Simulated scan of single mutants.
Amino acid sequence: MVFRSLRRAALGVGGPAVDTVLDDPETRPGESLRGAVHLTGGERDVEIERIVLTVLTRDGSATRELGRHELAGEFRLKAGEARAVPLQIAVPLGTPITHVFGERVPGLAVGVRTELEVAFAHDPGDLDFVAVHPLPAEAAALEALRALGFRFKDAGLASAPVPSDWNSADVSQVFDFWVAPQYQQIATEVAVGFTTGADFVELVLDGAVRSRHDRGEPVDWEAEVDRLMRQIGQI
């Protein structure tokens, strides 16, 4: 799959065009996005000072930066010249998940912004959206919640303070579920989060109880969710 975003850079009439092409706009935290930035020269030669790629997350009207990578340094783009600059940018482990159970989370988005800087001008760039799916262990835990009878309510970035180890990119995401009938005496809804490292994943319920495992370890997530819910009932 190739994802294209063609636009004319905001560098004045007759300026260069920028076409960001991702090999695949589907990704997961900790993976990389690959593709190329295609430049087409305008009516005159321009000195490109640098091309910067930034991974951003947007929750409603709030935008936060997750990672930044300088793709290319100074070079001259001649009038009418076509040039492709390969791109690769890491998707931080703490990047919010935008798609749950195959559906997009309303109001939450992640994208890559391509910024073009030339002498005495700066094109802030458009945001090219990507779909961020859960890592396998996270997906298995979320599926276990659904199998137990929990109903997905919504997800977003936390506005209230949460434990600092909920993320690795200064962004905290919470998945809200209506609890399954068998736990109605404990709570009516529960907040679900993940702490994900290079080699581990930790399921966190209501910011209070947690279950940590190696990312490649087979886990009975239904049993773990049941155990954590009963711990919440004892708090």
Rank of each mutant, 00 (worst) to 15 (best):
E224C: 01
G207C: 08
L6K: 14
L39D: 03
E81S: 15
P218G: 06
R68C: 04
E31V: 01
G41D: 08
P16V: 11
L157P: 03
S211H: 13
I97M: 09
R227Q: 10
P163E: 05
P16R: 14
H69F: 13
P25M: 05
Q88P: 00
V174D: 01
D199A: 11
A17T: 08
S164E: 04
A36N: 03
W221E: 00
R104H: 15
E74C: 06
T114G: 05
A62F: 11
R230E: 12
D220E: 06
Q182R: 13
I186V: 13
D128W: 01
V179I: 14
Q88F: 00
W178I: 04
I89D: 04
H99D: 13
A131G: 12
A121Y: 05
V91M: 10
R230N: 10
V2L: 09
D128R: 08
V100Q: 04
F175E: 08
Q184L: 13
V132I: 12
L22G: 04
V174Q: 02
V46E: 12
H213D: 00
L203A: 09
A121M: 14
I89F: 02
T40N: 05
L145R: 13
A36E: 06
I186C: 05
D226P: 01
G67R: 08
D199M: 02
P86F: 09
R68H: 02
Q173W: 02
D165Q: 03
S211L: 00
V219P: 00
G111D: 04
P86I: 09
R146T: 15
E65M: 14
P181E: 14
G14R: 11
G30I: 09
G207R: 04
V46W: 12
D19M: 08
R104T: 15
A84E: 10
V130G: 02
A131M: 08
I232D: 01
V21R: 10
Q231T: 05
V190H: 08
G14M: 08
D45A: 10
T98S: 10
G197Y: 00
D176K: 03
G94Y: 12
V46M: 12
V204P: 00
G156P: 08
D126Y: 07
I186E: 03
P25F: 11
V85H: 03
R151V: 07
F129Y: 14
D19V: 11
H133A: 12
S164G: 02
V162I: 04
H133M: 12
G107M: 11
F3D: 13
V110E: 04
L205C: 02
R230G: 03
F177T: 06
M229F: 13
I232K: 08
P124Y: 07
F177M: 09
R34V: 10
A121W: 15
